[in-house]
Structure formats: C-alpha cells, structure tokens
Design a protein around this nucleic acid. Structure first.
Length: 216
DNA sequence: GCGCCGATTGGCT
DNA sequence: GCCAATCGGCGCC
C-alpha cells in the first residue's frame, strides 16, 4: 500500500475535538507519518484505544489529576502525549475532546507503509508484522520518544486521512489490553482482518473459562 | 526516603 | 503461561 498524495490530507484540530471514543474509531485507516531523525516512516492505523480522562480509572487523566508526566494530556486537542511504559518503552497518544479533559487515544498498532527498512533497523527485527504491532513497538519503529510529548500534531509526526477504510477492513470493538481498572470497558478499536494488530480480540471471560475447563 | 505498581515486550518453560 | 527489565508516580512512614 502507498500513500496517495492527492488524497492525503492532514487531520484538522476539529477532528480531535470530539470524544476519544469517536476519535479512536475514526482514526482507523488514517496514516501516521513520522520524520523523526529526518527519516520518513509511515504506517496505517489498525488498532487504537480510547482513554476517557476524568471519569476513567484506567486513564492517566483520571480525576483530572495533573503531574509533570501527564501535563501534555491536558493540552489542546491534537496534542501528542508520549509517556514511558514500564520504564522501557514509549507509548503515544493524541489528546481529544477539549482542553483539560484529560482524554486521549492510544495508538496501539500500525500497518507499516513507508520506510520499512528504517523500521527494521530501529526495531532489530525482520518480520514485518513485528514492526508496529504494539504501542511500544510502533514508537520504536517510528522513532517516537519523549521529544514529541506536548507538541502539536503537525510539528513533526502528522496524521493524514488516507481515503477511508478499505473494502476488506472489518472494524471490531473489544475491551482494552493490559489494564486492571475498568478492564471491561469496550474502548479498543481494531481492524480485526489485519495481521498487524497487537493481539486478536480476546475471548469473553465466560467462554475462556469454558475452554480452559475443556482443556482447550 | 522507601516500596509497590503499571496503557509492554521479548525470551524461556 | 511465566517472568525480568527499568523508572516515574504515588501512598505511606
């Protein structure tokens, strides 16, 4: 897949000035273009999660509590919020809704499009499906670090609307990954037909239990 | 000041 | 499936 320059259009701030849930769903199929280190890399978004800020116990903006780390989360819509995960990885979000809402969309997986050799070099892996299939992985592949935190969406990395979804794309919703609080909120959005998602849709707890009981 | 925890990943059983 | 790596935020003393 390549980016059609005629159709490519940078997403306006108004795109992000809506609920994180809506933005997370509508970002599927959009393209992230990074120019980190002067090298161009790009990927198509295939997985996102919404974090709702004040009312969301899993959000870094829970109860609108601000710290030096999450400062960017309370900035204007379209601001990048990048944080360190487990002291090792970077994860990147785009601020949504309104100033001070603390809500954002986490980018969880991309389908690599441009600069794939650069991604391989940065990631130290060959397999294409391991390049951007996770929030930490995609940051490494695109060269995203704390440098991007608090900057406006267009400053370095940008998001462009790439037509829309393709005919083969299947939009699915599931619970969010890797959290313990509000773990049952259906705020993960993914193109479930893509091989580049971080994980498949989890089985429901009930059927998972049944599978375990049956030795599956 | 001290200890625990996490929006992850990669390697091993 | 289990576990370590590694660090900032947070609760508690």
């Amino acid at each position: 897949m390549t980016i059609d320059k005629r159709a490519a259009k940078v997403l306006p701030v108004s795109f992000f000035a809506r609920s994180a849930e809506i933005v997370a769903r509508e970002l599927l199929g959009a393209v992230v273009v990074s120019r980190s280190g002067g090298v161009r890399t790009a990927g198509r978004i295939v997985e996102t999660e919404a974090y709702l800020g004040g009312p969301d116990p899993a959000s870094h903006g829970y109860q609108l509590r601000q710290t030096p780390r999450n400062r960017a989360l309370f900035g204007p819509p379209g601001t990048w919020y990048v944080y360190r995960s487990y002291g090792i990885h970077w994860c990147t979000n785009l601020v949504c809704q309104s100033n001070g809402s603390g809500s954002a969309v986490l980018l969880r997986a991309l389908e690599p499009m441009d600069g794939i050799e650069t991604m391989r070099h940065r990631r130290g892996v060959i397999a294409e499906r391991l390049l951007c299939s996770g929030p930490g992985r995609l940051c490494q592949a695109l060269g995203i670090t704390r440098d991007l935190d608090g900057t406006a969406m267009r400053v370095s990395e940008v998001l462009v609307r790439e037509g829309a979804l393709e005919r083969a794309d299947v939009v699915s919703v599931s619970t969010r990954i890797g959290i313990t609080k509000a773990a049952d909120w259906p705020l993960r959005f993914l193109l479930s037909s893509s091989v580049h998602v971080s994980r498949p849709i989890p089985r429901s707890p009930a059927s998972s239990k049944a599978m375990k009981k049956r030795g599956g």
